[in-house]
């Protein structure tokens, strides 16, 4: 019974703490997400959003707390290709000599043989993914020659190709134009309907209201967490941003 309950959560982070060389970046953070939920991760620069993702992908070790993915350890989740991660653009070398196709194919590596030679099914998955983000014409272009928005879509395609049930996206909307923004938010709705779990960080309050079921406000620790309609209040946002109210967020009330 207990076990079953565990299983019903895709992501379960309990009191996790992360420090970089003794400097605390995140402490006592909790998060529980189920299938088909989209959760927005909101906080100011340096609040620990990327750090939260680092912990969930196992890229940094947590000094305290527990992370369970589908009720299992992180290691098993990684081997099961349960988690896909779309990095913040600052985190990657965009002059690296690889093409769009190469990058998207990297999404398949975890389920390939040791030489990573693609099977027919891998090629199909890559084609489908590139198609979904509308980059087919650019698939042989080196990523250094792409625009910021096209690069974002490339990494999104990699996550799609991986066919993970959990998507972690670090600022997927940063620096993209309206058309790409629309394409990406439509994809998120599709993912949700496919039963995927999505955690995305964003600085755009409109997006949170638009399609996030849940919102997690952080400032080194959780300031507020819950249903967007209940938690995403001006008071909470103000306290998340250290007393500053970002006025862009409260233009036209929906």
């Amino acid at each position: 019974m207990d076990k079953l309950n565990y299983k019903s959560y895709r992501i379960e982070a309990e009191n996790i703490c992360v420090d970089y060389h003794g400097k605390v970046a995140l402490y006592d953070a909790n998060l529980r997400l189920k299938a088909g939920q989209i959760c927005g991760l909101v906080g100011m620069n340096g609040a620990g959003k990327t750090t939260f993702f680092n912990a969930l992908t196992g890229f940094v070790n947590i000094s305290k707390g527990k992370i369970r993915i589908n009720g299992e350890s992180l290691k098993i989740a990684q081997q099961d290709q349960a988690i896909a991660y779309v990095p913040q653009s600052e985190g990657i070398d965009c002059q690296f000599p690889v093409s769009v196709w190469d990058v998207v194919m990297m999404g398949r590596y975890g389920s390939m043989n040791i030489l990573r030679s693609p099977r027919e099914s891998d090629i199909q998955a890559v084609k489908d993914a590139i198609d979904r983000v509308d980059l087919m014409e650019l698939s042989s272009i080196p990523i250094g020659n792409l625009s910021g928005g096209q690069r974002k879509r490339t990494f999104l395609a990699r996550a799609i190709a991986q066919r993970a049930s959990i998507l972690l996206l670090d600022e997927p909307f940063a620096g993209v134009d309206i058309r790409t923004e629309k394409l990406i938010s439509e994809l998120f709705i599709q993912f949700k309907n496919e039963g995927k779990t999505i955690l995305l960080s964003t600085h755009d309050m409109i997006h949170v209201r638009e399609f996030c079921d849940l919102v997690l406000l952080i400032n080194k620790t959780v300031v507020a967490y819950g249903e967007t309609s209940e938690v995403f209040t001006p008071e909470n946002i103000t306290s998340t941003f250290g007393g500053m109210s970002p006025d862009v967020s409260f233009g036209p009330e929906s």
Binding site: I92, V98, G107, Y109, G110
Partner: peptide, 19 residues
């Protein structure tokens, strides 16, 4: 070869897919 390219390019992704 391919794993090393991925490691140089995006070690975090390598980690997430269980490499």
């Amino acid at each position: 070869r391919k794993d090393l390219i991925l490691y140089c390019f995006d070690p975090r992704h390598a980690k997430t897919v269980g490499i």
